[in-house]
Design a protein around this nucleic acid. Structure first.
Lengths: 329, 329
DNA sequence: TTGAAAGCGGTACCAG
DNA sequence: CTGGTACCGCTTTCAA
């Protein structure tokens, strides 16, 4: 066989046509299984195409058939199961609409987030994601493209927006701790340029209501981050009898570390996370948490993209997080 | 403002040109920040574009600038951390090459796998994934497109291929168990049309070497699957003193269940998984396992895609899995 | 049933 | 600095 797939130069529909001795429109018909074509001609064309290693250009196709939409999903860290769960929800929702999802993991790195934003525009029709950049920056980079932002308040006006409302859930969690006799309840917050999170304010409010003092330490969003922060916290406040954390990953690290430092969980130290992830059931004791319906978050995000794409500005969606009592508190 | 973004009909570069009173080539220049253009003209064009809500067509762009490659990543279940870790590795590797990754979660469902394969061809330039369909089927659906298959032996000849060699790792694991005095060591295998896995054969070989009897039960690949299988196994063989599992997710369920059934881990029951995932450190006790370098698997997959795209048939890559001693055995 | 021609929305090279 | 023209690879009328 003299003419095998030539790497380097693209084989077009015309090459196939020439080789099969037909016009290139006929090749198109054969390839797309259109009716009006002689069976033997079609077979010959198909064979030729295969022999030549022909592959249609997705760009040319997309250009003429104005369907096929794909959305970019920007995530700070795929290894944090929270994002994985949201991603799974979004993927499932996208599949229902025959949309494609291009996933970007920014590794919690500002530069990677920016470089992602920079290329995003020419790759997808819309974006949903967790960004650390301020709204206007995102706005700038995504000029005109539909954007759905999750769990952030300072979003540009044209964006879709999903808020997590954990106020009641956190209050319930703190109430539970207080009712169980815990009095020295600290929080491991996220570590974001030294700004407190909204989750912190829910915690602080709840603590105030119960007339309890607050203690806070920032933690990196990883098991190790939780461990380090917990160690620091217990160093400063050895008398703590409970900890509430920014998320489950931190909580798991915290729980681990508390144990290492001699606390029995939940006997003399309670742990409550945030997110309510599936992995919370894998640890011993199972992690109590303030649960977000992650699949739903993913699904709503895709829904909002749909509206944005239709030229409709979606209402701000609010997902309520609820207290989930398991074993660790 | 009379002309706001018209949803429904696409605004092209020519619309912008007309509205700004220039030719459309000039618009292209302004948009792409090419030098040869008057600053004020450029600004005017940019403003008009923004006002009209103009968004360039990624297809048209892609068509003319023959760069930008995107690879499809097909995964049975994003919620299984093994796949997430591989995905993370692949995403990172792809980023280094400025490639885009379209992720598909087939939910371990045959139909979804097929429908994914069906649309894949017109969406990406190459595929890497875990498929359950036999090689020839994959070959058929992906006609001509580069494919890298991971952890499967029956791949089509033109595919890239990554094998996991856990023979030594499993032998080391079993040797460790035997050396610790375990004698009744069972295995929870995967549940795939009743076929035993390669991992099972490694286990069986190792057991034979030590002159020990084998016990096997199939398990669905989830925490619950591991729990159920463990329960069934202990029902039949209450005297088991150790379990080796097809993967870590099953192991975690198994460990959990063994505990529920009164076994102390690792005191009177040892657990060893396969994969060596990060979540293994989150459970108590930390899970011993036969570790695969998941990031490397992802990276190699992308590498092989690169070779395939260059018209080179990559060598079969083998990733060796090694025994990882943590707390559970 | 098949071929010719017109675009899809851009980019790039040309002359002006 | 700007406009004209060709062309990227494919689908889709419209004739033949």
């Amino acid at each position: 066989m003299t003419d095998r797939p030539q790497p380097g130069k693209r084989i077009t529909i015309r090459d196939v046509a020439k080789s099969a001795g037909v016009s290139y429109q006929t090749v198109s018909r054969a390839l797309n299984d259109k009716g009006e074509i002689d069976t033997s001609t079609k077979q010959r064309v198909l064979d030729t195409a295969r022999r030549l290693g022909y592959r249609p250009s997705r760009f040319a196709r997309g250009l003429v058939r104005q369907d096929s939409t794909s959305v970019g999903l920007v995530i700070p860290n795929l290894l944090n199961p929270y994002f994985t769960e949201v991603a799974a929800g979004a993927l499932a929702a996208a599949r229902r609409r025959d949309w494609h999802v291009v996933v970007y993991d920014t590794a919690e790195d500002e530069e990677q987030e920016l470089s992602t934003l920079a290329v995003l525009g020419s790759q997808v029709d819309a974006v949903v994601g967790y960004f650390s950049q301020p709204g206007p920056v995102i706005d700038q980079y995504t000029s005109g493209m539909p954007v759905v932002q999750i769990g952030r308040t300072d979003v540009a006006g044209r964006f879709g927006e999903i808020r997590v409302d954990g106020e009641q859930g956190v209050h319930a969690a703190i109430a539970h701790l207080a009712a169980s006799g815990r009095r020295r309840i600290g929080m491991l917050d996220h570590d974001h340029h030294g700004e407190a999170s909204v989750r912190y304010s829910w915690y602080a409010d709840a603590m105030r209501e119960h007339g309890l003092p607050t203690f806070v330490t920032p933690a990196a969003q990883s098991i190790e981050g939780g461990q380090r922060a917990m160690a620091a916290m217990l160093e400063k406040h050895p008398d703590l009898d409970a900890i509430f954390t920014y998320n489950d990953v931190i909580a798991i690290g915290a729980m681990f570390q508390a144990r290492l430092l001699g606390r029995r969980v939940p006997a003399d130290f309670a742990v409550i996370g945030f997110d309510g992830l599936a992995i919370g059931t894998m640890v011993e004791p199972p992690l109590s948490s303030v649960r977000i319906d992650t699949r739903r978050v993913g699904a709503i995000a895709i829904d909002q993209v749909g509206q944005l794409l239709d030229g409709v500005k979606p209402e701000v969606a609010t997902v309520r997080a609820t207290f989930l009592l398991r074993g660790s508190a």
